[in-house]
Computed example of a mutant assay.
Amino acid sequence: MPKLARTIRFDESDAQVFSRPAEAGEWAIPGGFEFSNWTEGDLSGKARQAFANGWLSLESFGRATLVAVAQVEEAELEPLARRLADHFVQLYGAPDAEAALPIAREEIAYMVELCADHSPNVLLAVSRELTEAGVRESFRAITPAEAEIDLVAIHGSAD
């Protein structure tokens, strides 16, 4: 069974750092294509945070700081690709969903490949930087045993 990743929220920080935060539990991909034409001038405020380390949800098209690897049914992948293809038409000017579908499938296949060697529940973080050659992405896996308590703890009050 293939693996993909779901957005997670340990606290409300994503709601404060992203213009459009993803809800917990949404399937996600890196979504670096959003930044392909960006320059240093585009990197400020919440846009900088989305660029620097935001995963793209395939449901709300919001951003999340962390995702967790999870098994996905093969039958779920095509509807996700079609949704992403529609997003390419609506936001990026693709001529139509059928023309955008191969690229959407590639994006999802890339994420499946990223998740393939990780066990379920491993957390993934993305980091991006703007280089002369374009956007460079790197990925880091965090196993639950490696996570510091501040990363996984939910802080609240007794009130």
Rank of each mutant, 00 (worst) to 15 (best):
E59N: 13
A94P: 03
E106H: 03
D150I: 11
I154N: 14
L84G: 03
A81I: 05
E26R: 03
V135A: 08
L151F: 12
A133R: 08
L43K: 08
F33K: 01
E148R: 06
W55T: 01
L77W: 04
W38I: 05
I29S: 07
W38H: 11
S127I: 01
A75N: 15
F10K: 05
F61I: 02
Q71I: 06
A68K: 10
L58R: 08
V17C: 03
E59H: 15
E26Q: 11
A50T: 04
L124T: 07
A75H: 10
Q90M: 02
A81N: 14
L130R: 09
G32S: 04
M111E: 13
A141F: 11
L151R: 10
L124E: 05
E107S: 15
A145V: 08
A28W: 06
F33T: 00
L151I: 08
R9Q: 11
A99L: 04
W38Q: 01
E106G: 05
A109G: 09
E148G: 07
G54V: 07
I154F: 14
V122C: 07
F33E: 02
G54Y: 05
H118K: 09
Q16T: 06
P102H: 10
K46L: 14
L66C: 02
F139Q: 13
N53K: 09
W38E: 09
E98S: 08
D86I: 03
F88M: 10
A15Y: 02
Q49R: 13
A109P: 05
E113S: 14
G32W: 01
A64E: 07
T143R: 03
V135F: 01
I103L: 06
L77A: 11
M111T: 13
P30W: 13
A50L: 02
V72D: 01
